[in-house]
Structures are given as structure tokens and as C-alpha cells.
Amino acid sequence: MSNVIETTGLVKDFGKVRALDGLDLGVAKGEVHGFLGPNGAGKTTTIRILLGLLRADAGTATMLGGDPWDDAVALHRRLAYVPGDVELWPNLTGGEAIDLLGRLRGGLDKARRDMLVERFDLDPTKKGRTYSKGNRQKVALISALASDAELLLLDEPTAGLDPLMEAVFQEVIRDMMAEGRTVLLSSHILAQVEVLADRISIIRQGKVVESGTLRDLRHLTRTTFTVETTQPASAIAQMPGVFNFEPNDGQVRFDVDAEHVGTVVSALSGLGVQAITSRPPTLEQLLLRHYGDEMAAHNGERAEVAR
């Protein structure tokens, strides 16, 4: 299997703070890989190590078959990067910044650039200092997406974009997927990753805690059912793997662990189902599973303080 990005045991310390604590990440060729985690989890630090802007204190990283630190320039010709916080030169226009960054990378496709400027609805004649955060983001995105890079490193690329532009972004990324490019998409916007990603790695406190396809991860969580039956459904509440059972105005609502869905559905079929909806777990729920203990601890602390 040819992984475009492969890191093992990456460690990075900033003074006393350990930003990465043995990070293992694998991104396969041609996939959109969602890199998911809350602020401060180490997403940006990982990407900066992959770009050779920071040097890892321990562990190994390979990208496109090269070493991110030693082969930085050669690798950068084959990738495009969108930082999470785009800063532009105050006295260069957006159009100039797009061209400049594209050329520094080794050239960009003019027709594609113009198409993207159009689609993202950017005024390229304005000076960098006048752009809002969203517009600065568009400048970096257009410059990256107009390149023919085989790998895209996108660090929260749509923070600051409105929903309309977010949709444009998703379309463009789908085009890129069709062209067989690899995308590492870091985000804490779950819906975006859910829509685009083939595989997901969840990072927490400098470590990847879960990695796999969305389906793999969903096995680990619960599906939510809302059912209307002719006969009372209260017995369902006693079945193994059923949680949060709530009767509500003739309907019942409950969550079921992935491995018990089969038995619960067979039990329901005997109750005269009139309407049934089931919802797969959202990434919020996946994340809550990983950060739930942290939040619980946090709430506990707060409760203690309150007391």
C-alpha cells in the first residue's frame, strides 16, 4: 500500500508544552483524509512538520516518498498548502498574491485560476489589508486549488467562508478527488469532513486516537431510532444495547449500539411498526465519545468549584 503521508511516533515540544505526543498518521494515495480534532489538539503542528517548517523532536515522517525536512523544496513543488490563518501582504492585491504564491510553487493553471476566482466570487483587485478573513481564505484556497499539485494540505480551509462558498469548496474538492489527488483536510467543522472524507483520523492531545472510514468508526457508536408502533414498545427499553429510551406522544426514541441493531429491529417488527426513522451517528457523537470523559471531568471540576 502506497501511503502519501506516513508518520510514526511524532513528538514535538514547545518549551514545556508537548504539542505532539507520538502521532501516527497514514494517508493513502488518492483519498480525502479528514484530520479531525478540537483546537490545540496538534493538527496545525502536524501539518507544519509535514511542510518542514517545524522539526520534529522524535519520530519519523515521510511524505510523497521524501523527508519533509531535508527534501522540503522538492516536496513543495508537488503539494499545495492552505494555512488556517491566512495572512496576506497588506499592499499586494489578492490577485497578485494568488499569482505570486502559485508561481513560487512552480506555476499555476491560469484558466483554472480565473474559473476559481469566478466561482469563489472574489474581487482580486483589492489590497490584502482590506480583505475580511473569509476573503483572505479564498485567496489562499484559489492559489492552492489552481495548482496541479498531487497533494493538498488544507488546514481548516473554510473557516470564515459562508455556507454558499463552503458548497463551492466541496464541489471543487470533489473534482480533485475525481482527478485522483490526495487531500489532507484538517478541520473541526464536522459536517465538512463527514461530507468529503474517505477516511478520518481523530486527533486528541497530540495523538491520533481513532482512524478509519466513517463506517468503521460508526461501528463504535449508536444509531438513533424514532419509531411509531401500534403495540406498546416499552419492552424495547429492557433489551441489551438500548439506551436513552424516551416515549413521546405515541412515538418512542432510543439509541442502539451498532452490534445490537439486528436484534432490536427484529423485535420491533413484531410490534406493528407504522413509521420508523433511523439516523446514523454524527461526527459530533463520535467526537463526544472521545472527548466525553474530558468534558465530564471538566464539568466535575466546575461542580467542585461551584461547591
Binding site: N91, I98, D99, T125, K127
Partner: peptide
């Protein structure tokens, strides 16, 4: 504020070009 150029001139595409652009004034 006035509008600027929609495209970068040909020479603005190298590290020297960028440094010159930022420093020339």
C-alpha cells in the same frame, strides 16, 4: 481605497521578486 491589479506582473513570482516588491517603495 483604489483598486489594484487583478494579476501579478511577470517578475513577481520569485523570492527576489517578492522581496523587491515589498522593499522597493
Amino acid at each position: 481605497p483604489r483598486a489594484g491589479k487583478a494579476r501579478a506582473k511577470g517578475w513577481l513570482g520569485t523570492p527576489v521578486g517578492l522581496a523587491w516588491r515589498l522593499e522597493r517603495r
